[in-house]
Design a protein around this nucleic acid. Structure first.
Lengths: 211, 211
DNA sequence: CTGTGATCCTGACGGGGCGTCACCATCGTC
DNA sequence: GACGATGGTGACGCCCCGTCAGGATCACAG
């Protein structure tokens, strides 16, 4: 007790200053509000003011953080990609061969989107289509990581060289599309969907034209 | 000669009346203008007034034909799907087995999009992403036709039953994605791209889980 | 040919979202 | 405690949206 009195806490507060804290809080509040608004109204119908209204901030404040509705949507995509990346990396590290990597990665992705959908695409007006995530930096990083993992694993297995760009794009397209369709079915069966996607890809791989 | 004089041409003009003709002309003019504007400004930046201005019509006239920018975009997608459908049908009719159908259909699609791109996506500002065609009636009809063709051909070959919805979605996704990537390469190689997509799908098919 | 009703083209208008900016409250710092 | 710096505020002008009353043109009957 007494010793703290002799050494009064100096003002070397570890936490960043209040300005900095409200800044990250505001940015996060806008992001959260955007998630809700996109989920409720759909992307097209949502306006910047719908989003900012929900935070209680003034309209001008929005533009201190994001330039437009598109940019905040991209930030949400980036956020998702950033959270998914470690899951993907984990799969690529523990994979022993191409099959186990593809299966692990796709299953991880399907589980990820299933949880995401649960958490914030709660009550979407029927027939609404959410736009696909655009090619933001973090999303691009995930795609690159898939590509590199493919290159690494195929190299290790001395597989014949194929068109990596086409292969990567095709695999991602299949995963996205089957993932979307999977989410529309009840109950959501991530294992079944993953089994389908994986077998399609793995079956097709040995037949691909070589470079 | 003389007989026509005895039977002067009555006013049963085969052509529809002037009102009807200007109607289809206006509708077409708006569609053409929209193609141009979307191509030059990109979909997001384009406004209804950009489109209607190019036709010389008044702004209100636009709304006599389409409800919104989205609807005119859908009409363009419908138009493309309507023109592609006979090409697809031709492939499904002359196909002797699953392989020849998939190859014919995908090659037809790749050639189609290559020509389309040539014709109206002339000078697109770099980095612009055109939104994927939404699920308009004609587009849905094309998808259904693919699905039915798959069902027919697989049935004929006594192939084991698979998840047709997943298979159709996956094949379309692969075709779309490889098609997009193909268009970004110079020179555009439709045969090479088709070879890749076809081999991936055909190789994967026998490995798919059975129902 | 002319009158009449139907059609639809026109452009001005109110509504509303957009992005900005001068103003001011609050924070960090000396 | 004074004083810049930072950043929140909301009113403002701009532009696009979709509508609608007015008017021009067309189809058609007499």
């Amino acid at each position: 007790m007494s010793n703290v009195a002799y050494f009064p806490k100096p003002h070397v507060d570890q936490r960043p200053g209040k300005r900095e804290r409200t800044k990250v809080a505001n940015r996060q509040a806008i992001l959260d509000a955007a998630r809700e608004v996109f989920g409720e109204l759909g992307y097209d119908a949502a306006t910047v003011r719908d989003i900012i209204r929900r935070t209680g901030l003034a309209s001008g404040t929005f533009y201190n953080y994001y330039k437009s509705k598109e940019e905040v949507f991209d930030a949400l995509a980036d956020d998702g990609a950033r959270r998914f990346r470690p899951l993907l990396r984990e799969q690529s590290e523990k994979a022993t061969d191409f099959e186990s990597f593809v299966r692990g990665a796709i299953l991880a992705y399907f589980n990820f989107v299933a949880v995401e959908q649960e958490s914030w695409r709660l009550n979407r007006p029927a027939g609404e289509q959410i736009p696909h995530a655009r090619l933001t930096p973090e999303v691009a990083a995930v795609f690159d990581e898939v590509r590199e993992a493919f290159a690494r694993v195929l190299e290790r297995e001395h597989a014949p060289p194929v068109d990596l760009d086409y292969l990567t794009s095709a695999c991602i397209a299949v995963a996205r599309e089957i993932g979307d369709k999977m989410l529309e079915r009840r109950p959501v069966d991530t294992e079944g969907a993953a089994d389908f996607a994986v077998k399609l890809i793995l079956g097709g791989l040995p037949a691909l034209p070589r470079l």
